Amino acid sequence: MEIRNLGGSGLRVSAVGLGCNNFGQRTDLETSRKVIHKAIDLGITLFDTADIYAGMGGSETVLGTVLGNRRKDIVLATKFSKPMATDGTKQGASRRYIMSAVEASLTRLKTDYIDLYQQH
């Protein structure tokens, strides 16, 4: 797999990434596990998800459940800012919300770091 620089960030990622929006929604846990491990085995290192994927956190939860000690083998990108509550209280890009959203994503992903955090 070809590895490239991700802009000027210092991150190096596979030329092909894995979009994770189906995990926890269209793809059950066991199928997701097979896809995730096969992607890593093939040299895919860029995994892209978001807090809103699969019913507000479902995709991140699956990734957190499946990755385990393979977390170190990937560059994990996730996103924030879309509504995460029906009452409009959990969304946007204020400092206060970003701090809350990143903590929630870290918990769902079962990791202590996110490589690339983006506003959706």
Results as ranks from 00 to 15, higher is better:
17 G>A: 04
68 G>R: 13
112 D>T: 09
47 F>V: 04
68 G>L: 08
45 T>L: 04
77 A>T: 07
45 T>I: 02
26 R>F: 15
47 F>N: 05
43 G>Y: 12
17 G>P: 06
87 D>S: 10
35 V>H: 12
92 G>K: 09
2 E>G: 06
103 E>V: 01
99 M>G: 09
44 I>D: 09
91 Q>R: 11
69 N>P: 14
92 G>P: 01
30 E>L: 12
11 L>F: 11
26 R>A: 15
84 M>F: 02
14 S>L: 03
73 D>C: 07
117 Y>F: 13
89 T>Q: 11
90 K>C: 02
107 T>P: 00
111 T>C: 01
1 M>Y: 11
58 G>P: 05
112 D>N: 14
45 T>V: 10
102 V>M: 08
79 K>D: 10
82 K>D: 15
105 S>V: 01
111 T>L: 00
20 C>M: 10
65 T>I: 08
83 P>A: 14
36 I>P: 02
78 T>K: 12
114 I>R: 00
23 F>R: 06
75 V>F: 08
24 G>D: 04
16 V>W: 13
42 L>S: 15
78 T>P: 00
81 S>V: 00
51 D>A: 13
45 T>A: 03
39 A>D: 07
17 G>Q: 07
73 D>G: 08
22 N>I: 00
71 R>P: 02
97 Y>V: 02
89 T>F: 01
59 S>Y: 07
36 I>V: 12
